[in-house]
């Protein structure tokens, strides 16, 4: 019998709302432009990380969501940095910043591609940003799916924890494209800490909704 695992905290950012462990935190009008909303949330929670401003929109969204998640459940205090995994998926990959890079190389008369833009043209850079911020060195992978896939995430993370590849996992979905944004990150642990919600496909579905 495989060991049960637990969802110990979660954070969501979508439609002008920050939701932390089920409770609505900072919110704005749902039609507030995505970039403005994420920046306002960053300021509201006084996250204080000057590098935030250098990130592209996808990483900013992931950064704010991960900071709030780890404030609610400071897993880096409880596990060795090598034992914390980060597994994230999305739909649009890094398309938002890809188009920005493309536009700087498309015009021969105004050709000034930016290295600071290009470095973000990979979706897994958002994992890198979370890893750098928290010195997390465990396993990390980025998947591309049509939509958040609780069945896949559930089985992938179960097997990771149950085979000893990690002791704790920061997982979820972070998508940003053309003013549409959706972040849902959660921690999964083997012990019944925090929220102690059973880590099942059904629960993931409920929390994501």
């Amino acid at each position: 019998m495989a060991a049960p695992n637990y969802i110990t905290a979660y954070a969501k950012i979508r439609s002008g709302k920050v939701i932390l462990n089920g409770e609505t935190g900072y919110s704005a009008n749902a039609d507030e432009p995505a970039a403005d909303f994420v920046k306002a949330a960053y300021k509201h929670y006084e996250l204080n990380y000057p590098k935030f401003y250098k990130m592209d929109q996808l990483c900013r969204l992931a950064f704010v969501c991960s900071e709030l998640l780890l404030r609610a459940n400071k897993v880096t205090a409880n596990y060795a940095t090598e034992d914390i995994a980060i597994i994230v998926a999305n739909n649009a990959a890094s398309l938002e910043i890809d188009t920005e890079h493309q536009s700087t190389i498309a015009d021969a008369d105004n050709y000034f591609p930016s290295p600071a833009v290009f470095v973000y043209t990979l979706p897994n850079i958002l994992i890198g940003e979370i890893a750098i911020r928290n010195s997390i060195k465990g396993e990390n992978t980025f998947f591309i799916f049509d939509t958040f896939d609780p069945r896949f995430m559930n089985s992938y993370i179960h097997s990771m924890l149950n085979t000893g590849r990690a002791k704790c996992c920061i997982a979820g979905w972070v998508d940003f494209y053309e003013n549409k944004y959706d972040a849902f990150l959660y921690t999964v642990e083997q012990t019944n800490n925090g929220l102690g919600i059973a880590h099942t496909e059904e629960q993931l579905n409920n929390l994501y909704k």
Partner: peptide, 10 residues
């Protein structure tokens, strides 16, 4: 095996 270097984006 897979890990993160947690040092810099590039």
């Amino acid at each position: 095996g897979n890990a993160n270097d947690a040092y810099h984006q590039t």
